[in-house]
């Protein structure tokens, strides 16, 4: 277990790196010339990063998570409500755990 000084230094280090990552994207974009291509890139990027988070999570889990996400996506497309989509996904996952462990 690290000593007090090392522990607080580590916390400060991780906080600094995390804050820098939050500020860096918008700052870097102030250095890039605006164009239609940049706009299309950002547009594609914004939806792609969410799709990538879903892909990465599903690759590390199983059918339970995949079924929950599929149901949530379906409910979102049909009902247009994120809260209903989440409720459906959570209910399916809870039911799956109760049924299959």
């Amino acid at each position: 277990m690290p000593g007090d000084f090392a522990a607080w230094t580590a916390i400060a280090l991780v906080a600094a790196v995390t804050l820098t990552s939050r500020l860096a994207g918008a700052f870097l974009m102030t250095r890039i010339h605006h164009s239609a291509a940049v706009e299309r890139f950002l547009d594609g990027l914004s939806v792609s990063v969410l799709a990538a988070l879903v892909g990465s999570a599903l690759a590390q889990h199983g059918w339970r998570e995949a079924a929950a996400v599929a149901l949530a996506a379906l409910v979102m497309m049909r009902a247009g409500s994120a809260v209903w989509a989440l409720t459906a996904g959570i209910a399916l996952a809870a039911g799956w755990t109760a049924a299959f462990g």
Partner: peptide, 26 residues
């Protein structure tokens, strides 16, 4: 996980992506 809460974030992202799929360019 017993309450299904572990899937909240991935379901939320999946729902947001699904909503964007109405745009064919996405």
């Amino acid at each position: 996980a017993a309450f299904g809460l572990d899937v909240v974030m991935v379901c939320f992202f999946g729902a947001i992506v699904a909503a964007q799929l109405k745009r064919r360019t996405a």
